[in-house]
Simulated scan of single mutants.
Amino acid sequence: MRDKLERRSFLILLVLVSIAFGFILEPFWGAIFWACAVSVIFAPLQRWVLSKIGERPNTAALLTLFALMAIVVIPVILLTSAFVSEGIQFYQRIEAGEIDPRQILQRLRDAFPWVDQLLVEFGVDTNNLKERLSQALMSASQFLAKETFTIGQNTFSFLVSLALMLYLTFFLLRDGKTLVNLIIKALPLGDEREHALFTKFAEVTRATVKGNLVVAIVQGALGGIIFWILDIPGPLLWGVVMAFLSLIPAVGAAIIWFPVSLYLYATGAWISATVLLAYGAIVIGLADNLLRPILVGRDTKLPDYVVLFSTIGGIVLFGINGFVIGPLVAALFMATWQIFMKDFNGEL
């Protein structure tokens, strides 16, 4: 009886201490998550370096970390700096009145009067709708500009998180295999099941991060290039925004280029508007429809609709980190149920 009580008491203590430790790490969850994700992605490179230089895990991890900084970190910092600079300029133009969202909306209404007539037939108060849309457009424009301004002000916080991520990444690259084996020993789920779940975690993380980032980079670059060719203000700013929005499957970058093409029609720039509309639908859209299923859906072994809903849900709940966390949770959910059907119901 006493042994049973002691065992239960210890398990309660274990849960409480684990929860308390989780709360302590809560401010660093973003850095910890990305350190784990990056370590999984660059683990093959680390193993290759280790095979070339011999049993020198510290050196191999350090060289892999330098490769990570050259391939990912430095380009992202340079791009973020340029993005913040253009975002601040955009914010200043809104504050100075050079960009007036209400005027943009009025031009769209004047160019497409049939929309007002259609709304009236459905009993919609167009005057009230105009005011609401104007306020929403103004709020969205100011939010975008202020967010980029905030990024510039929070540079120190970003650099601290980046440093913590790189620091932890070094140790995960060096000791990752040992840590995984330690976790497998600690968890009471069965070694075979734990290996299957860790394998699924690695597969989905690699596929989601690499796949979504490739799609985002391609769509953002394509969008920025066409904006630059058509002489639309802030091509780098809008290219980066389209890259972020492209993390949302199905719609993505169209949230930006489609309204801009409508505005170009409204201002009489028919050629530019037609070029942007065709380019967005064919070139940018094709990049999403071709690359995403190949890079994300196939490797994660998730249906397209599951990828869509899990990505959007992840972004809503976890912010930018959600584009990885959402599909990861969905994949682990399906993998866990497959293990359950196999082990407990005798079905595959």
Rank of each mutant, 00 (worst) to 15 (best):
M1F: 05
E6T: 06
E6R: 13
R7C: 02
R8W: 11
F10S: 07
F10V: 00
L11S: 14
I12L: 14
L13N: 05
L13A: 15
L14G: 01
S18C: 12
F21A: 15
G22C: 08
G22E: 02
F23Y: 13
P27H: 02
F28D: 02
A31P: 01
A31Q: 04
F33Q: 10
F33C: 03
A35N: 04
C36P: 00
S39D: 03
V40E: 04
V40D: 02
F42Y: 15
P44H: 08
Q46N: 15
Q46V: 04
W48A: 14
T59W: 12
A60I: 06
A60Y: 05
L65W: 05
F66I: 15
I71W: 10
P75I: 02
F83V: 03
V84R: 04
S85D: 11
G87T: 04
Q89A: 11
Q89K: 07
Y91D: 01
Y91N: 09
Q92P: 00
I94R: 01
P101V: 00
R102H: 03
L105F: 11
A111W: 04
F112E: 10
W114A: 13
V115A: 12
Q117I: 05
Q117M: 07
Q117E: 15
V120L: 13
E121L: 14
E121K: 12
F122G: 10
D125Y: 06
L129K: 04
L129Q: 08
L129R: 05
Q135E: 11
I151V: 12
F156Q: 05
S157H: 09
F158Y: 12
V160L: 13
S161N: 15
A163Y: 04
L164M: 13
F171S: 05
L173G: 05
L173T: 03
L179F: 14
V180C: 02
I184H: 06
I184G: 03
L187T: 12
P188W: 03
D191S: 15
E194I: 10
F198S: 03
V204C: 11
R206S: 10
K210R: 09
G211I: 06
V214K: 07
I217A: 15
G220L: 11
A221W: 05
L222H: 08
I225Y: 12
I229A: 10
L230A: 08
G239H: 05
M242L: 13
S246Q: 11
P249A: 08
A250R: 07
A254G: 10
I255T: 14
S261K: 01
L264M: 14
T267G: 05
G268P: 07
A269T: 01
W270S: 12
S272P: 06
A273K: 02
A273Q: 04
L277V: 01
A278C: 13
Y279D: 07
G280I: 00
V283D: 06
D288H: 10
V296I: 11
G297E: 13
R298Q: 14
K301T: 05
V307Q: 09
F318D: 09
G326D: 10
V329Q: 02
A331C: 03
L332D: 01
L332C: 07
F333K: 01
M341F: 12
K342Q: 15
L348T: 13
